[in-house]
């Protein structure tokens, strides 16, 4: 029994890893198929799809929309999440529990519901769909994570640090910019990356809030419903590589910082 289970666990693990990566490699391979249709096996290979999708104006504009939305929503989410964390850190007991509940609420709602509620709300204010609306929607989804990340780091900070600086004559702005923010830097870095990646991969909020502005996942969805060609596999592969690389870089960076190396 012992020997069987000792072998079974690694096997299960690597089967799981294969399950995660096999479809991605298959997709990458499909991007090189020399044909207008998607099918296996691949007899002839070509790199032309990669060239074609990178010259496709619709895809490039969708990527540009995605990038804008990612940056705007990240800036909003961090600008809101940072003071929100300070506020929560000052409270305690029931107030704190209540505040955290309300703050993390968007993370627990079905995304479809949250996106539609925001759309109706913005519509009522006379605001239209588009990049700004998507950015707002993404920020609503990101703020809970930003607050949790910053609060976690903040709870590791000793109050003595700020007090010592104050005793030495530092005012609020110096304490904030020279003590608190540098201490929070790893959490802020993590929050920034998290917001960017979360926004970039989102479909539902972008779909309901975008109107005529299509982010990359929305465009891909529309094209997939229309038909498949190897070019879609090519561009998906490129996007996948970019976001995975960014995600892994962030993970490693944060882990290094946390280990104090």
């Amino acid at each position: 029994m012992n020997r069987v289970s000792a072998a079974a666990l690694p096997v299960w693990f690597w089967v799981f890893v294969a399950y995660l990566f096999l479809p991605l490699f298959v997709m990458a391979a499909m991007g090189f198929r020399d044909s207008n249709f998607i099918a296996f096996p691949i007899h002839q290979w070509t790199a032309r799809w990669y060239g074609e999708v990178l010259a496709d104006a619709e895809i490039l504009s969708a990527l540009w929309v995605s990038l804008q939305v990612a940056v705007y929503s990240m800036v909003i989410a961090v600008a809101v999440g940072l003071p929100m964390s300070f506020l929560v850190a000052r409270t305690g007991g029931v107030t704190r529990a209540l505040m955290i509940t309300v703050i993390v609420l968007p993370a627990f709602l079905p995304v479809v519901v949250s996106a539609i509620a925001i759309r109706m709300f913005l519509g009522n204010l006379g605001l239209s769909t588009g990049v700004a609306a998507i950015a707002f929607g993404h920020a609503v989804g990101s703020v809970p994570f930003v607050v949790i990340m910053i609060l976690t780091r903040l709870s590791a900070m000793s109050a003595n640090m700020a007090d010592a600086a104050r005793n030495l004559g530092a005012d609020d702005i110096i304490v904030m910019s020279r003590i608190v923010l540098p201490f929070l830097a790893p959490a802020l870095f993590g929050a920034v990356m998290f917001c960017l990646l979360l926004s970039f991969e989102d479909f539902v909020r972008s779909f309901f809030l975008g109107g005529n502005d299509q982010t990359f996942p929305v465009l891909l969805y529309a094209r997939l419903r229309f038909g498949f060609d190897p070019g879609l596999a090519a561009i998906s592969t490129l996007v996948l590589i970019a976001s995975t690389a960014l995600g892994l870089y962030a993970e490693r960076h944060i882990r290094r910082r946390n280990l104090g190396r």
């Binding site: 991969e201 969805y221 995975t244 892994l248």
Partner: peptide, 13 residues
């Protein structure tokens, strides 16, 4: 690693 890939891209794969 695959965590950051869009739901749509994963469906396509």
């Amino acid at each position: 690693a695959p965590f950051w890939i869009s739901e749509i891209v994963r469906s396509f794969a």
